[in-house]
Design a protein around this nucleic acid. Structure first.
Length: 292
DNA sequence: AACGCATACAACCGCAAGTCA
DNA sequence: CTGACTTGCGGTTGTATGCGT
């Protein structure tokens, strides 16, 4: 297809940003908002490529960023989300208000990987290290890492809001765990490699497959606010979705396992929360994930 | 004090998906 | 429908800093 380079490299600065460049970028975005990164550098008087500007803003200059060390709670949340989503750093970052995908990715590579290894867990599979080798082909239908499907045996995932946190409780459907190992009952769409639950879920599944308490306590900002750039880039359906979503009270989210099941009122399919946040259609609930 | 190594993190690169004419 | 273009993501690299010898 022939792509043009993202910038004219001969005329752009590279490497660390200076305070002056930062200030120019901040000033420009304050007065014009995000968006059109390609033309932003020229308009802002920066000798940087748009990509570089975007990255600098998102990862470092954005005012809503939470600087400083990760808390123990954040650590655990990242681990849990990674066990479900894999290296989907942007999705994980979306669940940690004030943290960026780059920051989480770096933190994962420098701290959490080691932490898991010390615990005797494989950082990629979240399985015990000595078990990893024998289960390399195993993934799970509950494993959200590979795709936008295959968690249909969870019949109920409630994200209920306490005063300051959400709590995610996933209830497993007994019938889908019939064999006691919770790895049968494949759905039509489940790819063959997604057959075993990851350890996080498998652990609970072993306990009679009754209840999976993921206990995800996340910040009170359930969704990132609609920025100007998002407004510019989003289609109207997505904007509508976000509007509707913001109106959902009292922030209860439910996964619909089967289309025939009557969804709870005022609830949002958690697939939307985890992987369909851009308003993609969900194969589980056959909607964009939003129930009213 | 100087050096080498390890670590942390900012920034870059290439690719894929999305958008639009 | 097609292709040009933009944006966002994930992997990787480069560099500053800290620490031990």
């Amino acid at each position: 297809m022939g792509r043009s380079p993202c910038c004219e490299k001969a005329h752009t600065n590279k490497g660390a940003w200076t305070k002056e460049e930062d200030q120019r970028l901040i000033n420009y975005i304050r007065s014009h908002g995000e968006g059109c990164w390609r033309s932003l550098p020229k308009s802002a008087g920066l000798l940087r490529c748009g990509k570089s500007c975007r990255l600098r803003w998102i990862n470092y200059l954005r005012p809503d960023l939470k600087r400083g060390n990760f808390t123990e709670q954040e650590d655990e949340l990242i681990i849990k989300l990674h066990s479900m989503l894999g290296n989907k750093w942007s999705l994980i970052a979306g669940r940690l208000p004030g943290r960026t995908d780059n920051e989480i990715k770096n933190y994962w590579n420098t701290h959490i990987k080691r932490k898991l290894i010390v615990r005797g867990l494989d950082p990629q599979t979240h399985r015990p290290l000595n078990a990893t080798a024998s289960t390399t082909t195993a993934n799970s239908k509950f494993d959200f890492r590979n795709a936008s499907h295959s968690y249909s045996t969870l019949t109920d995932i409630d994200l209920t809001m306490n005063q300051n946190t959400f709590k995610l409780v996933a209830m497993a459907d007994d019938s889908s765990f019939d064999d006691g190992k919770c790895n049968s009952g494949t759905t039509e769409e489940a790819p063959p490699q997604l057959l075993q639950p990851p350890p996080l879920l498998a652990h609970h599944a072993d306990q009679n497959c009754q209840s999976i308490n993921l206990d995800l306590s996340i910040g009170l900002v359930p969704f990132q606010s609609l920025t100007r750039s998002e407004s510019a880039n989003s289609n109207s359906a997505e904007i509508e979705l976000k509007k509707e979503q913001e109106e959902v009270v009292p922030y209860q989210f439910v996964v619909a396992a089967r289309p025939s099941e009557t969804p709870a009122p005022q609830a949002v399919c958690v697939c939307w929360q985890l992987a369909f946040q851009r308003g993609q259609l969900c194969s589980n609930c056959s909607t964009n994930g939003l129930y009213r």
